[in-house]
C-alpha cells in the first residue's frame, strides 16, 4: 500500500512537470512578457522603458530557459522557468502581478470556498443517490419515466439560469436570503444556503440520471438474479447488492473531486460574490493576472493527482478484488 502510494506520487512528478511546461509555454513563449507588460500598462503608456520597468518590477526580466549572463549553476536556475514555474513545486506561488502574496490569498480564500463546496458535495451526493435509487426502485413505472424526463429537462437548462432564477426568486422576490456576498462566522449560513441550493438543483438532472443508469446496469447482472433467487426483498437487493457493486463506478467520479473542493466553483462563487478561490481565479482571468492563473492551474493539477490516489485507495475499501501493492 505504502509502496503503491509512493509509486503514484513519483508518477505525479512528470505529470506536474508536464503541466508546468504547458502553462509555461502558453504564458511565456506564446505570450511573451513584453506582451503582458503592454496589456498591463495600457495602450497609452507603452514605451520601451515602461515595458522594461514593468518587467523588472514583476520579475519577468530574465531569460526563459538559459541565462547566459549568469555564472555557474545560476545559468540554469536564474531563469523565468525556474523562478516562475519550478518554484510552484515547493508550493512557492510568489506574488501576483499586482504584488500580493498568492499563498496568503489562497490560505484565506479557501475557507469560504470550502464552506460552499463541501455542503454542496455532501448533500448533493446523498440527494442524487437517493433520487436515483427511488427511480430505480420504481423502475418501469410512471414515476420512473417521469423522473427521467424531469432529469433530462433539468440537465437541458444552462446552469446560468439556475443561478439567475435562484437569485431572483429567493433573493429579490421572496427576500429569503441576501442575493450575494459572504460573511465569515455564525452568519455565514445565510450566505451559504442559496449558492448550495442552486448548485444542488443545477446538478440533479445530470447526476441522478447517471447514477440511475449505473444502477440499472448492475440490476441486469447475474448476481442480482442470484440474490433474488435467494428470496431477498427488492429493497435489500437494491441496497445491499446493487448499491454495493455500483459504489465502484460511483467512487471513480466522486472521490477524485474531493481535494478540489478547496478550489471552489468559479461560476457559483463569482455569481454569489463569495470571496473564495473560485472568484479569485475568475477575477485573475478577467484581469489577465497570469501569476495567479498559473498558480491555480498548478494547484488544481496537484489536487487532481491527490484525488486519483484517493480514488484508488477508496477502491480497496469498496472492492475486495483490488489490492494496492
Amino acid at each position: 500500500m505504502l509502496n503503491y502510494i509512493l509509486r503514484r506520487l513519483l508518477y505525479a512528478i512528470p505529470i506536474l512537470l508536464g503541466v508546468n511546461l504547458l502553462t509555461f509555454a502558453l504564458f511565456f513563449m506564446v505570450n511573451t512578457p513584453d506582451d503582458m507588460a503592454r496589456i498591463h500598462l495600457g495602450a497609452k503608456h507603452v514605451t520601451p522603458e515602461a515595458i522594461t520597468r514593468w518587467k523588472v518590477e514583476h520579475g519577468y526580466d530574465k531569460p526563459l530557459f538559459l541565462n547566459a549572463a549568469a555564472a555557474g549553476l545560476d545559468k540554469a536556475t536564474d531563469t523565468l522557468f525556474v523562478e516562475k514555474s519550478l518554484k510552484l513545486f515547493v508550493l512557492d506561488f510568489g506574488a501576483s502581478d499586482d504584488g500580493r502574496d498568492i499563498a496568503r490569498e489562497i490560505g484565506q480564500r479557501m475557507w469560504p470556498s470550502l464552506a460552499i463546496a463541501l455542503p454542496t458535495f455532501l448533500v448533493g451526493l446523498l440527494a442524487y443517490l437517493s433520487f436515483a435509487l427511488l427511480l430505480v426502485f420504481f423502475r418501469g413505472t410512471a414515476l420512473d419515466t417521469g423522473g427521467v424526463i424531469l432529469c433530462v429537462a433539468l440537465m437541458s437548462i444552462s446552469g446560468l439560469f439556475y443561478v439567475i432564477g435562484g437569485q431572483y426568486l429567493m433573493g429579490k422576490l421572496w427576500h429569503w436570503f441576501p442575493i450575494s456576498g459572504y460573511q465569515p462566522g455564525l452568519d455565514a449560513w445565510k450566505f451559504m444556503v442559496m449558492p448550495v441550493l442552486v448548485s444542488l438543483i443545477g446538478g440533479i438532472g445530470d447526476s441522478s440520471r447517471f447514477y440511475r443508469a449505473l444502477f440499472i446496469e448492475e440490476i441486469g447482472k447475474d448476481y442480482v438474479r442470484t440474490a433474488r433467487a435467494k428470496g431477498l426483498s427488492d429493497l435489500r437487493v437494491l441496497f445491499r447488492h446493487v448499491l454495493g457493486n455500483a459504489m465502484i463506478p460511483i467512487l471513480t467520479g466522486v472521490v477524485v473531486v474531493i481535494p478540489r473542493l478547496f478550489m471552489g466553483s468559479l461560476i457559483i462563487e463569482s455569481f454569489f460574490g463569495i470571496p473564495g478561490l473560485g472568484s479569485y481565479t475568475i477575477d485573475a482571468i478577467q484581469a489577465q493576472d497570469f501569476a495567479i492563473v498559473r498558480s491555480m492551474v498548478f494547484l488544481g493539477s496537484l489536487l487532481y493527482i491527490v484525488g486519483l490516489v484517493l480514488t484508488d485507495i477508496s477502491y480497496t475499501w469498496a472492492d475486495p478484488r483490488v489490492r494496492l501493492e
Partner: peptide, 15 residues
C-alpha cells in the same frame, strides 16, 4: 431454489 450456469458472475463479487 435455483442455481445458475455462470459461477463467474452469479455471485456478488463484493460480499
Amino acid at each position: 431454489a435455483m442455481i445458475f450456469q455462470e459461477p463467474q458472475t452469479s455471485l456478488n463479487p463484493v460480499m
